[in-house]
Simulated scan of single mutants.
Amino acid sequence: MSNIRATKSGFAAEAQAKINSKYSEEHAQEVLEWIRELTGEPDNTSGDPDNIYQHLRDGTLLCKLANVMQPGIIKRVQESKMAFKCMENINSFLEAAKTFGVPSQELFQTVDLWERQNLNSVVICLQALGRKASKYGQPSIGPKEAEKNERQFSEEQLRAGDTVISLQYGSNKGANQSGLNFGNTRHM
């Protein structure tokens, strides 16, 4: 529905141009190929902003993706093309993404996709979801997420570290200040 709005000008146009400049067609294509691998849709995986907007704007493909990762996480997918029903689908996907563990700073807002304000944040969210996919038995994209690796040290091991003098405290090896005259008069 972004065709109803007036074109931006001034600071708003500059800000929108800066947001749009961060969009990466390669990342968008990778995300669409991953979605196709899981859901069988879409046929066209071009990273073009128009293409990703057309495939994702009603939210049904996003809901289908979430339900493939964990069946039944989105109970009701709105098939209607009415604006509020589509935005409800997008919001349901975002709630599912939170459940999957996507950090809040990597989520997008519904209007970012529906009004095509920030497709880059949509791609970032889908990449974050792609990293979480391996935890749900699905193929993932991007780098593997680090896992927690807690270690337990005994009291003896912790005390052993107190006897070591760190290099941050300095060293008496290498260059030194011998030959410097601090406080001494200069002889001419």
Score class of each variant (00 low, 15 high):
Q29C: 09
Q29H: 11
Q29A: 15
E30R: 11
E33D: 06
E33C: 07
W34G: 11
I35D: 10
I35M: 08
I35W: 01
R36I: 10
R36G: 10
R36C: 12
R36N: 09
E37V: 10
E37Y: 04
L38T: 07
L38E: 08
L38M: 02
T39V: 06
T39K: 04
T39D: 10
G40A: 05
G40T: 11
E41C: 09
E41I: 10
P42T: 07
P42D: 11
D43C: 14
D43G: 15
N44P: 03
N44Q: 03
N44R: 01
T45R: 04
T45P: 12
T45K: 00
S46K: 04
G47Y: 01
D48V: 02
P49A: 05
P49S: 03
D50F: 07
D50P: 08
D50H: 04
N51Y: 01
N51K: 02
N51H: 01
Y53F: 12
Y53S: 05
Y53I: 11
Y53N: 04
Y53P: 07
Q54E: 15
H55E: 15
L56P: 12
R57S: 13
T60N: 07
T60V: 10
L61P: 03
L62Q: 01
C63N: 11
C63E: 06
C63Q: 08
C63H: 03
L65S: 04
L65N: 02
L65I: 08
L65K: 00
A66K: 08
A66Y: 01
N67F: 02
N67C: 10
M69R: 07
M69N: 07
Q70S: 15
P71G: 12
G72D: 07
G72F: 00
I73V: 14
I74S: 03
I74L: 07
K75I: 05
V77M: 04
Q78G: 09
E79Y: 10
E79P: 13
E79A: 10
E79T: 14
S80A: 14
S80G: 12
K81T: 15
K81S: 11
K81F: 10
M82V: 11
A83K: 12
A83D: 15
A83P: 11
F84L: 13
F84H: 09
F84S: 12
C86W: 00
C86F: 03
M87P: 05
M87E: 08
M87T: 07
M87R: 09
M87G: 06
N89G: 08
N89E: 06
N89W: 01
I90F: 00
I90R: 00
N91L: 14
S92L: 06
F93D: 11
L94C: 08
L94V: 13
E95A: 14
K98N: 10
K98T: 12
F100I: 10
F100L: 07
G101A: 08
V102W: 00
